[in-house]
Design a protein around this nucleic acid. Sequence first.
DNA 1: CTGGGGATGGGGCCC
DNA 2: AGGGCCCCATCCCCA
Length: 259
Amino acid sequence: MPRSFLVKKHFSSSKKPNYSELESQTVIVSPHLYDQSYPMLAIPAPEVLSPAICYPPLVWDSGLLSSFFTPVPVAAPGPPEEPKALDLTSLSSDDYDSGKGSDPPSPVSLEEEAEKFSCDQCPESYTTLPSPSKHQQLQHSEDTQPRKSFICKVCEKEYVSLGALKMHIRSHTLPCVCKICGKAFSRPWLLQGHIRTHTGEKPFSCTHCSRAFADRSNLRAHLQTHSDVKKYQCKSCARTFSRMSLLHKHEETGCSGSR
DNA sequence: CTGGGGATGGGGCCC
DNA sequence: AGGGCCCCATCCCCA
């Protein structure tokens, strides 16, 4: 399945159109563009959009919200449970697939994630919590009060709060749309970062060299290149890398343990 | 082939 | 509760 970042890029740094006139953009709310029956995004033609359109936060009435999640009481600590039964009938795959700028995680990737974070106190696997300790803190703490968990009906991810689930649901509805290219994003600041790719704005400068970056994370990765000892180290050969992806690549290509 | 830059996704935290 | 931001992660592309 194509993912959003697999979309062929048309704007290289050397071939950028002049979007400087777009730097002072206002976010235009266009609630009428919502599909009243279903909150999936319908991306209007770029020519009818403002420089950046970001829809307002979705208003989840009880019926709408319940179509996206299932509140499930979870006893903690509890006996092993069967996997949560999910009612996905309210969303067809066609509904899900339509009008989206990026694809949901594939089942394979979810399984890989689940393997990455498995709990030794319960059969539950999880993909959305940052660490096993966090999971245990949340799900296996002293109190025995039943907890509610909130499960996305689209991708089955589980959240400990409705707010977290609502935030996640935005990744399905993608309410923020770039006028220039029509690409949709889950959050306004993601759209802002994307717009920088059109405007060429690079507010994050390296203190060691003259380079500047549009994204803080990319600056951070760049800063690693100025360090003699990189952050990511191969356990076999002790070689260090500036990025985890480079370390992974190194390991996948078969570290000889001698480099 | 490798390293680095660019772009993007998503959960959590703070206000 | 929601928005903004941080941080981490991942992938593509290119020199």
